[in-house]
């Protein structure tokens, strides 16, 4: 018998298929979105030759890692921001009386298949970035290029879940969550040295956004980190992602316990 979660995902696919044209339009317009994120960063390099000591091709590697990690997280977990609707309308009740985990159900019931092509674009841009940089490939670096986008995706996924969980306490949280998710993506698209002071300390290191794209990119390129972290710092990204995921799991569980439901 099919796995219950697979069945949920397949049902979602069939629901989409009942609105075929609008699905295709969505799919294509989403590709544009991802491409624009990358272009925005490249424009900056048109203005100055280097940004905080990073060349155009190095910058491209950072933004491509950030963009792919985000696309992956947005595709799998991003729709958790629909939790607001589920909580406000009380639809979460229906989810909670089924014999499956609440979070996987929410994700699979709304899997944003229209965002699928973003992944293709993300992988493409990363391939270009790896090509234009002269990377001295070692087995560790090969592993890192696979691990880094996945760890980044886990990290962004955790941010998505944490932002969404706020809804359990504060239904009118509105777009506060987007400040951290989309804001976080934009933060990671640039080399961390462009930021300074407490802002950099807080977002890049205390919250861990620096380990999504910047540190892995520095490690891949084998260049010195202007901020002085050791060369292997890029390999910390899975650890940072795991810590973020644990925090997200904690927030989510506490949130479910705190869920108030609505009306009858």
């Amino acid at each position: 018998m099919a796995n219950p979660y697979t069945s949920l995902a397949r049902a979602q696919w069939r629901s989409f298929a009942s609105y075929r044209t609008s699905f295709v339009v969505d799919l294509l317009s989403n590709v544009g979105g991802t491409a624009l994120d990358v272009v925005a960063v490249l424009v900056l390099f048109q203005a100055t030759r280097t940004v905080a000591g990073f060349s155009l091709s190095e910058g491209l590697l950072i933004v491509s890692l950030s963009s792919l990690a985000f696309a992956l997280a947005d595709f799998t977990v991003g729709n958790v921001d629909r939790l607001k609707t589920y909580v406000r309308t009380g639809l979460l009740d229906a989810v909670l009386v089924r014999p499956l985990g609440a979070l996987p159900q929410l994700l699979l019931m709304d899997l944003p298949l229209r965002k699928a092509l973003r992944l293709v674009v993300g992988v493409g841009v990363l391939a270009v970035a790896l090509h234009v940089n002269a990377i001295a490939w070692t087995p560790a670096r090969v592993a890192l290029i696979v691990i880094a986008p996945l760890a980044g995706a886990v990290f962004f996924g955790a941010i998505f879940v944490i932002s969404a969980s706020v809804t359990f306490w504060w239904i009118d949280s509105g777009d506060l969550g987007s400040a951290f998710t989309y804001g976080g993506r934009d933060f990671t698209a640039y080399p961390v040295p462009v930021y300074s002071g407490w802002f950099r300390a807080l977002f890049a290191y205390a919250m861990g956004f620096g380990f999504v794209a910047y540190q892995p990119a520095v490690t891949l390129l084998g260049r010195d980190d202007p901020l002085g972290l050791p060369a292997w710092a890029g390999f910390l990204s899975p650890l940072v992602a795991l810590i973020a995921a644990a925090a997200a799991a904690f927030m989510w569980r506490a949130g479910i316990r705190h869920y108030r439901s609505t009306g009858s």
Partner: peptide, 29 residues
């Protein structure tokens, strides 16, 4: 347990009723 909330549907809005039933078979194994 079985639960019917008069105002919250357990069914898949865009799918035929029959499909909802067969999905529930997988979900509840």
């Amino acid at each position: 347990i079985g639960v019917v909330f008069g105002q919250r549907s357990q069914l898949w809005w865009d799918l035929p009723l029959r499909d909802s039933f067969s999905l529930l078979r997988h979900i509840y194994r």
